[in-house]
């Protein structure tokens, strides 16, 4: 084996654990936390849009408009580098969580809104006819049916989010991609390090796709067609 191959192998093996560790310690928690919080924001935003209340639905629209219309990287910079001018200084991790949560909240709200609207009106009426309140009908009848529709696109959002967390490197968070950058700075092997990081992202995404498939099967049980 020549020296070059030897060196690449060495770099791969010595960097693998630090990369994976950063992935498990920061990338995955960042993605999961942002997604869970984002879903809560998304649900509230979707309900605000559907509420028929002009003010609430106006606020929801405005929020979605801003988040969808501006780059995520720019949003992260505003939160991390910009907010200190207002006296709000946040560490990299919370800044990233806020940024990604807002993003999931905006895109997810459209998915949730569409999935709620896909439930036939007759389901609401049946729920009301047995005396349910809006909240009971939503929680017991509509959301369980909407979930089946929302799972595939939401799972896609989550997979995108896992990859987008690499943007947090730009606000100094030592997630997986930033660790790759740091090791590259000392080894001068960008192709090796970035490819290695790419493979680990690929593994994460693939596992999530399997999970998505499983969830889809689970939620489509008992429903015709």
């Amino acid at each position: 084996m020549d020296d070059r191959s030897q060196r690449i192998l060495e770099i791969l093996s010595s960097s693998f654990w630090p990369l994976l560790k950063a992935g498990i310690e920061f990338t995955v928690p960042l993605a999961i936390l942002s997604f869970v919080l984002g879903l809560a924001v998304a649900l509230l935003t979707a309900l605000a849009r559907l509420s028929g209340n002009r003010v609430l639905s106006g606020i929801a629209r405005f929020y979605v408009w801003i988040i969808r219309g501006t780059p995520l990287l720019v949003q992260l910079f505003i939160i991390f580098y910009g907010l200190p001018s207002f006296g709000v200084t946040l560490a990299a991790f919370p800044s990233a969580v806020i940024g990604f949560t807002l993003s999931v909240g905006a895109y997810g709200s459209e998915i949730i809104r569409a999935s709620i609207q896909s439930v036939p009106r007759g389901q609401w009426e049946a729920a009301y006819s047995i005396g349910m309140t809006y909240r009971q009908a939503l929680r017991r009848i509509v959301i369980p049916q909407a979930t089946r529709v929302a799972v595939p696109p939401l799972a896609n959002s989550f997979i995108s989010l896992v990859k987008d967390t690499s943007l947090a490197a730009a606000i100094t968070m030592t997630e997986m991609f930033r660790v790759a950058q740091q090791i590259t700075a000392t080894t001068y092997e960008p192709l090796v390090l970035y490819s290695e990081a790419a493979v680990i992202y690929l593994v994460f995404s693939t596992v999530l796709s399997w999970l998505q498939g499983w969830l889809e099967v689970r939620f489509s049980r008992h429903v015709a067609k």
Binding site: G122, Q145, R148
Partner: peptide, 8 residues
């Protein structure tokens, strides 16, 4: 008319 049973 269309029953509107809860399908889940």
């Amino acid at each position: 008319q269309n029953y509107n049973l809860f399908p889940h």
